[in-house]
């Protein structure tokens, strides 16, 4: 069964600037993979709870204690673009 994929929208959501040729290639590969993946729908799963986590654990917390932060220069040294004490990015289109 062919799978319905709006590959351009998926690429936008994933923030990947892909050429039309690349998009077409991924589209067809995703079709193949998803047709295979659709097998997950073939098993009877009514009333089966999902598993998100392999170990049955709850409430893993840490105490409210302050630990050392990183050295700012060590952090900013990794920045592709730095402006003084800040990371710098080009203008932002959307307001979140």
């Amino acid at each position: 069964m062919p799978v319905d994929i709006d590959i351009a929208k998926v690429a936008r959501l994933a923030r990947l600037a892909l050429s039309p040729e690349k998009l077409a290639e991924y589209d067809s590969q995703l079709q193949d993979i998803l047709e295979h993946a659709e097998r997950v729908g073939a098993l009877p799963t009514e009333g089966v709870p999902p598993t998100s986590h392999p170990l049955p654990m709850t409430n893993a917390f840490r105490p409210d204690e302050v630990k050392a932060s990183l050295d700012r220069d060590e952090v900013l040294e990794q920045a592709p673009e730095r402006a003084g004490e800040y990371f710098r990015v080009p203008r932002i289109l959307g307001e979140s």
């Binding site: 995703l30 993979i33 997950v40 799963t45 999902p50």
Partner: peptide, 28 residues
Amino acid sequence: ARRILLGTYALSAGYYDAFYGQAQKVRT
């Protein structure tokens, strides 16, 4: 990139239940 696209799709609105949600049940 392929897996990011695949995963983004599997989680996106309208497809979550059929793909990601169902896969989690198969995991069970």
